[in-house]
Design a protein around this nucleic acid. Sequence first.
DNA 1: GCAACTTTTTTGTGATCACAGATAGACGAT
DNA 2: ATCGTCTATCTGTGATCACAAAAAAGTTGC
Lengths: 260, 260
Amino acid sequence: MDDRVRQIDVTTMQERVYQELRDALYQGRFLPGEVLTIRSLAAALGTSPMPVREAIQRLVTENALTQLPNRTIRVAALTQEKYDEWIRIRCEIEGYAAARAARYSTPQLCERLRAINAGFGKAIEAEDASGILEGNQHFHFAVYEAAQSEALLKIIGSLWLRFGPILAFAQHLPGSVEMFRRGIEVHDRVISAIERHAGKEARFALALDIRAAAVWFRRRHFEGPLDKAPAQEAPRTARARSRLSSVPRFADERRSGSED
Amino acid sequence: MDDRVRQIDVTTMQERVYQELRDALYQGRFLPGEVLTIRSLAAALGTSPMPVREAIQRLVTENALTQLPNRTIRVAALTQEKYDEWIRIRCEIEGYAAARAARYSTPQLCERLRAINAGFGKAIEAEDASGILEGNQHFHFAVYEAAQSEALLKIIGSLWLRFGPILAFAQHLPGSVEMFRRGIEVHDRVISAIERHAGKEARFALALDIRAAAVWFRRRHFEGPLDKAPAQEAPRTARARSRLSSVPRFADERRSGSED
DNA sequence: GCAACTTTTTTGTGATCACAGATAGACGAT
DNA sequence: ATCGTCTATCTGTGATCACAAAAAAGTTGC
């Protein structure tokens, strides 16, 4: 009716705080284990503590933040066991999303995915660390959106939230570029499977992508030297058995007479 | 040190409010779509509005409650599409939990599951409506706990939260006893698969259990006459194809050239 | 110099207040 | 009788206050 004024933001303060904290976590602007205080965040955001505490509580229920018995709030820090646990869950759920994407796939979707993956490749060649992470996220969520399930997307979003602070480390680790470069091929596999409506293959390829990155990162992060510095030289090159045809598996998964 | 005093509850008010609301939702004490107001809940709980609003926000992020653009809070109501969507996700995630339970299964676990299922059967024969729901929940969560993944258990808990208000309807629908009686057999299948460490079978059987109940309920609830009364006579008996050997499927799942 | 104690500050939590938007009911004009 | 308006009430939201527990800093005694 009247275009002399623009639409303004009508969302609640709390919602905006929540989104801002969420973005910050996604992008790794907070370190794992870092302590957050309501008042200091409120000051930084320019609001009163009120919206902040509600936003924080929401993030605690999503497991993105942890509340110690002291009631101190920290950014969730993953032990190796928890890490493995969440990775397996991610493979399952995000694999399912990929399978559904394959069901609903269209030529337009595949074209879009290829374009995103090409951009991902460009960022890798340019060694643009944050661009790499962004491109990877972009690709994955393009697949998940194609699953056409709002509920699923929301669940996956809260899964990713846990890995944001950790991924921020990854970009500073040596060899990450080579790691992501291999990711391009796996992404291509995912696209190919989606294109052929091959749900099972899409699921497998996507789980492979998650697993490969997870195993790579786990080796540097958890099994490396125990210094505090997160970006030390990782001595081992360990290129053995990094062909894409076999799925890397965690230790306790070496077949126990069952298949899953 | 001093046993003249007992341990008291040191959790925060907000946490207790959250748990209480959660229990109420689980047990179907709130109707789907029911409007909740902070102040009236606070009065009913005997606290100030403060802890209530935080607890409510948490439940909103879990999708157990919905916040309309008016900012009114309602108990989440599922459309048929959303219902189907969530059921499929449940099959996937809870099926995965069953597969993991099969991996870690012990004779003690199977014994326990059989005992729980026997209790479930007793409640059915006694036509004890709330006992039936409780027994069913008990069985399912015993399986999920056996998956030995805290993270997974939490996710599943929030999935179930959405179905609490709906399940409360189910117990008043005619024919629910027969429905649950068939559930006993499926539970037995689940147990058998877990006992044999057959992950794939456990996953399948558990998904079957969810699907069978979901399809049954969907028919009465969404496809029935559109009167407001939730517990009217369901005219159709529709016993066709209710043998346990075939998985009931939703309309859009009749194979589209892909498998998932 | 170091340990134990005391004081001060900081932190999360709960209650209360203030306010704007929404809702419903009463009232009045047509 | 019906539609619109106006008012009174209710609801969620944000800010501020009050308080107890914890942490940090300072102080004292040996």
